[in-house]
Amino acid sequence: MSSYIPTYHAILDAPDLHIGYKNKRGDISIANHLNLHIYKGEMICLLGPNGSGKSTLIRTLAGMQKPLAGDIYIQNKRMHSGNLNDVAKQMSVVLTEKIDLSTITVFELVALGRFPYTNWYGKLTKNDTQAVENALIQVNLETYANRFFCTLSDGEKQRTMIAKALAQDTPFIMLDEPTAHLDLPNRIEIMKLLKNLARNTFKSILLSTHELDLALQLADRIWLMQSYKPMQCGTPEDLVLNGSFEQAFKKQSFNFDIADGLFKIVYEYTKAVSVEGEPIRLFWTKRALSRHGFKVEPKQTDIPHITVFDTAWEITHNNTKEQCSTIFELLIALSQKHIKY
């Protein structure tokens, strides 16, 4: 994987963009004074809590709704003045809309991506067929060309839609929550696939997502949207260090740990114990204890003390000792004791 070098060649610019909905009683503003730039070959993750306006921004950038004010420029050309076919050659989209067609093959669906290039009859030239086949290879679906789309798994369907965007052969691809409804391996696979595409083909990719961990690890830049607050743009690291991340996702029930970049659940502690032992076994023992409301404290006389051995756990409490062979047994044993906090 070659390393990403910022080129500052902007694919898309949107200076002073105001987004929202037009209404008879007036405009409903979602976000104002956005200054957006997307550079060649970078992957941008658009993050933000539900309702912060991610979809509105995607829809506006895709030309599906007009901005309240400001213009969008693709390759220095004003988008809303251009003809739709030209825009379709610059920008492709993958949306959350479900495709429910029983009798369309993967190849036919991906071939729809060639729409801006084919003639009025939609005839595929050799060039078009080649582009479709290449797109399928890039998403590892080359053997699926003649399968019916409806027989694919959710992950494969999403990859097909990405192949459609690739067949459209645009310098800029925009994806609205491409990892929604997918399981963890598929989520990681899709994100890595997109990252590799940005790296290897120098396409610019903008995707909205709720995968905070993956976005922190894979995004070149993050756009962080929050309701009623200005949008934060920057590398993941910049946003972590200046506290934007912690502030945006701060909730009572979990914390963003700036030390390791992970989100942690805040447990409610009702009881206390002390623990000692070998680091890895100790780590998982502590985790189980936290989940069950035990706060781990330094060794004291009046709280139970747990010693973690290689094969067993030993509880010392009020001068009695008890052996447990699993964490499950340990938790049961602890629950039978009267422990104060």
């Binding site: 895709a62 030309g63 599906m64 003809n83 739709l84 076919n85 030209d86 825009v87 379709a88 050659k89 920008m91 492709s92 989209v93 949306l95 809309e97 495709i99 067609l101 369309i104 669906l109 729809l112 991506g113 729409f115 801006p116 084919t118 009025w120 009859y121 939609g122 459209q168």
Partner: peptide, 18 residues
């Protein structure tokens, strides 16, 4: 028939295709 095929993906996708 060409735009009709694009419309199979829904209006938003169709617009994205031009």
């Amino acid at each position: 028939q060409k735009p009709l095929n694009a419309l199979l993906l829904g209006e938003n996708y169709a617009q994205g295709l031009g």
